[in-house]
C-alpha cells in the first residue's frame, strides 16, 4: 500500500496539515473555548477554515450564531468536493458517511491530482485519514498549550490568526477574478466593521461574494439545435 504514490502523497499532506492543528488548538482556547470544546470542533466539524472562522468570530466578541453562519458558509465548498468525489469513490453504507466526514480541501486535492482511478481513491483515503489523525492529536496539544499560555496577545496569537486566514486565502488569489471578489469582500468588511456587531462583517462580505458569483457567472448554455 505504501508503494502507491498517492498514498505516500496523502500521508505527507496529512502530517504537514496536522502540524497546524497546534495553531488551531492554541487559538481556540485563547478565544475562550475549553480544551474539550476545541477537540470537539476538530473531531466533528473537521474542516480547518470553518473551525478557524468560529474561533475568530468568538475571539472578536461575536455572537455564537455569527460563528455558526461563518462556519457554514465556509463549509459550503465541501459539498461541492463531495459532488465531485462521489462518482470517483462510490462509497456505500457507513463508508459514505466516513467519506463525507473526511471530505476536506486536502483529501479532495490529493485525489484530484491523480490520473489513475484507483490512485485517486487511495489518495483520498490516505490524505483524509492522515489529516484526521494528525489534526485531532495536534489540536489537543495546541489547546492544552494555549490554555497554559495566559494572555493570548502577549504571545501574538491574534497576529497568528490574521496570518492563518491570509495563508488559507493565498492559494485562491491566483485567479484574477477571485482576487477581485476577495478585495471587494475585504472592502465590505472594512466598511461594516465600525458599525455592525462582531461577526456580521464576515457575513455581509460573504453575501456580496455570493451575489457577484451567481450573477456574473454565465449559466450553462442550453443545448443548441
Amino acid at each position: 500500500m505504501l508503494r502507491s504514490p498517492a498514498v505516500r502523497q496523502g500521508l505527507s499532506v496529512g502530517v504537514a496539515t496536522g502540524l497546524y492543528g497546534i495553531s488551531f488548538g492554541a487559538l481556540a482556547t485563547a478565544a475562550g473555548l475549553s480544551v474539550w470544546q476545541a477537540c470537539l470542533l476538530s473531531a466533528v466539524m473537521f474542516t480547518g477554515g470553518s473551525q478557524f472562522a468560529v474561533v475568530g468570530v468568538l475571539a472578536a466578541g461575536g455572537a455564537p450564531v455569527a460563528g455558526f453562519a461563518s462556519a457554514t458558509l465556509l463549509g459550503l465548498r465541501n459539498a461541492v468536493y463531495g459532488l465531485q468525489l462521489a462518482p470517483r469513490l462510490r462509497p456505500r453504507g457507513w463508508r459514505r458517511l466516513l467519506a463525507a466526514h473526511l471530505t476536506i480541501d486536502e483529501s479532495a486535492a490529493v485525489s484530484a491530482a491523480q490520473d489513475d482511478a484507483d490512485e485517486a481513491r487511495w489518495g483520498f483515503w490516505a490524505a483524509g485519514l492522515g489529516v484526521f489523525v494528525c489534526w485531532n492529536a495536534t489540536t489537543l496539544g495546541g489547546a492544552v498549550l494555549g490554555d497554559a499560555l495566559g494572555d493570548p496577545r502577549r504571545w501574538g496569537l491574534d497576529g497568528a490568526a490574521a496570518a492563518a486566514f491570509l495563508a488559507l486565502l493565498w492559494p485562491r488569489l491566483r485567479r484574477r477574478e477571485t482576487a477581485a471578489v476577495a478585495a471587494a469582500a475585504a472592502l465590505v468588511a472594512v466598511l461594516t466593521l465600525p458599525v455592525a456587531p462582531a461577526g456580521v462583517p464576515v457575513l455581509a462580505a460573504a453575501l456580496v461574494a455570493a451575489a457577484l458569483g451567481w450573477w456574473r457567472t454565465r449559466p450553462a448554455r442550453r443545448d443548441a439545435p
Partner: peptide, 28 residues
C-alpha cells in the same frame, strides 16, 4: 454541478469569507 454558477459561487463565497476574516482579525 452542471450549472457552472454553483461551483463558481461556492469558490467566491470561500474567498470572500476568508478575505473578510483577514480584515476582522487584523483591525477588529
Amino acid at each position: 454541478l452542471a450549472d457552472p454558477r454553483v461551483g463558481r459561487t461556492t469558490d467566491l463565497v470561500t474567498a470572500g469569507c476568508l478575505a473578510a476574516l483577514v480584515v476582522v482579525q487584523t483591525v477588529g
